[in-house]
Computed example of a mutant assay.
Amino acid sequence: DVNVYNKIFEAVEKVPGANNPHRVRSRMIGNLYMITLDIEVNPQITITQAHEIADAVEKSIINSVDNVYDILVHVEPAGGCQTGEKFGVDKDMV
């Protein structure tokens, strides 16, 4: 459902410090969503700060998408996004 992906991208955009959501994957487990995605953060921040941003992304998605079972946010340093990644959806794909 393209609407779910749009909601995920919008939810990430609301979180300060979370950039370039990519490799977004949404799967249904029964009637619940399992969501995984990568985000980029400033490479100069601490692991604790990156973790706080990832937690805020999870909360923002939960507040934006109904029926979420679980969310996995993978954090990368800004500029570390690999082009031509095989799996997932990027914002320009929806």
Rank of each mutant, 00 (worst) to 15 (best):
V2C: 04
Y5L: 15
N6K: 15
K7Q: 10
I8W: 04
I8L: 09
I8K: 00
E10V: 04
E10W: 03
A11R: 05
A11M: 04
V12T: 03
K14W: 13
V15G: 03
A18F: 00
A18I: 03
A18C: 04
N19I: 10
N19W: 03
N20G: 02
P21E: 01
P21M: 04
H22F: 09
H22K: 04
R23A: 14
V24N: 08
R25Y: 00
S26N: 10
S26D: 10
M28F: 11
I29P: 00
G30N: 15
G30P: 11
G30H: 11
N31D: 14
N31M: 13
Y33F: 14
Y33W: 15
M34P: 01
M34Y: 05
M34C: 06
M34L: 06
M34D: 08
M34R: 06
M34T: 09
I35P: 00
T36I: 12
T36C: 12
T36F: 08
L37T: 05
L37Y: 02
D38F: 06
I39W: 04
I39L: 04
V41D: 00
N42E: 07
P43D: 12
Q44T: 15
Q44Y: 11
I45L: 13
I45T: 11
T46R: 13
I47N: 10
T48H: 11
Q49F: 05
Q49M: 11
I53D: 10
A54P: 05
D55G: 12
D55F: 09
A56Y: 00
A56W: 01
V57F: 05
V57M: 04
E58G: 01
K59G: 00
K59E: 12
K59M: 11
S60M: 06
I61G: 06
I61P: 00
I61Y: 02
N63Y: 13
S64Y: 04
D66P: 03
D66W: 04
D66Q: 10
N67A: 14
N67T: 00
V68W: 09
V68K: 12
V68I: 15
Y69S: 14
D70C: 08
D70P: 03
D70S: 15
D70T: 14
D70M: 11
I71P: 03
I71F: 07
V73L: 00
H74P: 00
H74M: 09
V75C: 05
E76C: 02
P77K: 12
P77G: 09
A78S: 14
G79A: 08
G79M: 13
G79R: 12
C81V: 09
C81T: 06
T83K: 07
T83H: 06
G84M: 06
G84D: 02
K86R: 08
K86P: 02
K86S: 03
F87V: 12
F87N: 08
G88Y: 06
G88I: 07
G88F: 06
G88W: 05
V89K: 13
D90L: 02
K91F: 00
D92Q: 08
D92R: 11
D92G: 03
D92T: 10
M93A: 14
M93S: 11
V94G: 03
